[in-house]
């Protein structure tokens, strides 16, 4: 299997997870989207040297993944895939920012290392929350929710079509790659200019495809707005879900829970 096909298969896996039927899946997509947005807002708004107060936020993706039967191992693997991005963003912090921030047993911890860890932690939290959201709501569910929540039509339509045609485009790319591989010998034919011409072909094919899709949409009365048939109903459960989690996030944001816990424990011991 080529890497492209493997990638498509992975995307398909997320789709199959989203097709399960659990209490989390049954929640209204809007409830999950809003809750996740509050979560992201709280996590991202911490200062750059804060690590400890981020830790309690881990319960959200973990609880949701467990209840929604999204395997934690799968999440962890996905995180590793994207981790290089976060690593690149943070990797110079320890080098550039050497001011000691704390000292543990005589070893000075520089601000750079703390902010590096903070970046990694935030990356893990936000990415896993997004993955769990899609894995329990489906990509299309998220698009639908965004549209109902007032995101511009064009935005929702773009996302819907993007997700639909990523599979078609992926298959075309995979078959081109295969066609190149069977006629390339000993690395000859695999060079950059062949690659460039393949990309060009793909671009033109995409353009043609887009034209044909648009024609078929016009043929069925498309007028610029995609109307989605599935009705959404916001029930009491959804409201409670959103309010309860959001309250927890705000509390985590305002109070440094691990610190308070630590102080409480020390007080009891003393």
């Amino acid at each position: 299997m080529s890497r492209i096909e493997a990638g498509l298969y992975q995307l398909g896996r997320l789709d199959r997870l989203a097709a399960q039927d659990t209490s989390v899946h049954r929640l209204d997509p809007r409830a999950k989207v809003v809750t996740t947005l509050v979560f992201l807002g709280c996590v991202v708004s911490f200062g750059k040297y804060q690590v400890l107060p981020l830790l309690p936020f881990m319960i959200f993706p973990i609880v949701l993944a467990t209840d929604g039967r999204v395997p934690l191992g799968y999440l962890a693997r996905k995180l590793l895939y994207v981790a290089p991005f976060a690593l690149v963003i943070g990797m110079f912090n320890p080098v550039l920012d050497r001011a000691a921030l704390a000292e543990i047993d005589g070893i000075a911890i520089s601000g750079g290392w703390v902010s590096f860890i903070s970046i990694l932690l935030r990356f893990a939290l936000t990415t896993s929350a997004a993955l769990v959201l899609i894995g329990t709501t489906s990509f299309n569910g998220v698009c639908m929710a965004l549209e109902r929540l007032g995101a511009p039509d064009v935005f929702a339509t773009q996302l819907l079509l993007l997700y639909r045609y990523i599979f078609v485009l992926g298959e075309e790319a995979a078959s081109m790659t295969r066609a190149r591989a069977v006629r390339s010998f000993g690395g000859r034919g695999m060079g950059l200019h062949v690659y460039a011409s393949m990309l060009g072909h793909l671009l033109f094919r995409t353009y043609d495809r887009a034209n044909r899709v648009y024609r078929s949409m016009l043929s069925r009365g498309f007028d610029g707005q995609i109307r989605i048939a599935r009705p959404l109903r916001l029930g009491g459960r959804d409201v409670i879900f959103t309010l309860a989690w959001s309250t927890i996030f705000v509390l985590f944001r305002v109070f440094n829970v691990p610190l308070l816990l630590g102080q409480a424990v020390t007080k009891v011991i003393a």
Binding site: S138, L160, Y163, R164, R209, V213, S216, A229
Partner: peptide, 10 residues
């Protein structure tokens, strides 16, 4: 080209 929505029903 004809099937562009997320599900068959839609």
């Amino acid at each position: 080209d004809q099937l562009f929505m997320p599900t068959v029903y839609e």
